[in-house]
Design a protein around this nucleic acid. Structure first.
Lengths: 152, 152
DNA sequence: CTCGGTGCAAAGAGTTTGCAATCCG
DNA sequence: CGGATTGCAAACTCTTTGCACCGAG
């Protein structure tokens, strides 16, 4: 798989084309599902929802599409502690945010409160760490674990 | 499994006993392996190393011991991005630290540089977030992703 | 003696792969 | 038309479970 860098294209459809990929019914369905949800869906959950749009789609296509979107930087794969991956669109309406993960029900809550201080510190850390460890930092993961209101 | 809180016991051996568990050759081997390594081993890697100490040990015991130690708060389970879990002793010589994760080779590097500022901010965040989201925060995960020096 | 602990084999769960058929452009 | 994409089933990987035997205390 090519590690595609095709910036600026407004629509995912265009980005696929620009990367030499094709837009298909299956991919459209996956993207639609991701755009319409507020939650962090697993591959399987995306599968169920995508089936409603396109009954012929297979789980394999979900995985392959997610992998492509992930490579393109359009979706982020999250780790919620249970064994399956969860996915969120990178460029949904949401801005930069981090996660609260419930250890009991594995629910993931986004937060973007108070995030400016966080981001400022992170940028500094990135600079210092990449210098000290000669490490090319491309991203970060910040999560707080605990028990959510519903589970308490 | 009991969610054991038996503070203050100096040795893991004692902590096991204090929790109503038994100390066995298998558990000793797992603990020894964890104490002697500087890396973040997977269950399988721990298995190989433990086999050297105790050739009769099975992979199952590794998993079950790690689960107990994890419940007791003696080991932390890490997520490196590849699908298997990695483990580190909570009370090794290392103090509080966070991780740099190489996306290429999945190596995890500990850092504890500049960590005071980080921890200070985290504590603040925890306070604010737990209030706003009514979320009982028990821990956090901070990781930077990128490409390590060896992989560049 | 009592129960917790063990190894083994088998089961699970999530994800990936091989392949022939199909579809996009 | 040519190569990318797909669904299906099978393969894989890591982890968990059932069970009969073993052993710590």
């Amino acid at each position: 798989m090519k590690n595609c860098e095709c910036p600026g294209a407004e629509k995912l459809h265009g980005r696929f084309r620009g990367c030499g990929y094709r837009m298909t019914a299956g991919r459209e369905a996956v993207i639609k599902v991701l755009q319409e949800t507020q939650e962090h869906l697993s591959a399987d959950e995306i599968f169920s929802k995508a089936r409603v749009i396109n009954p012929d789609i297979g789980l394999t296509t979900i995985y392959r599409t997610l992998e492509k979107l992930s490579m393109m930087g359009e979706v982020h794969k999250l780790d919620s502690g249970d064994k399956r991956g969860r996915f969120e669109l990178a460029n949904s309406g949401k801005g930069h945010h981090h996660h609260l993960v419930c250890s009991r029900c594995n629910r993931i809550i986004d937060y973007d409160d108070f995030i400016d201080d966080e981001v400022r510190l992170l940028k500094e850390m990135e600079k210092k760490l990449s210098k000290k460890y000669n490490f090319a930092i491309s991203g970060h993961l910040i999560q707080f674990y605990g028990v959510c209101d519903k589970c308490k």
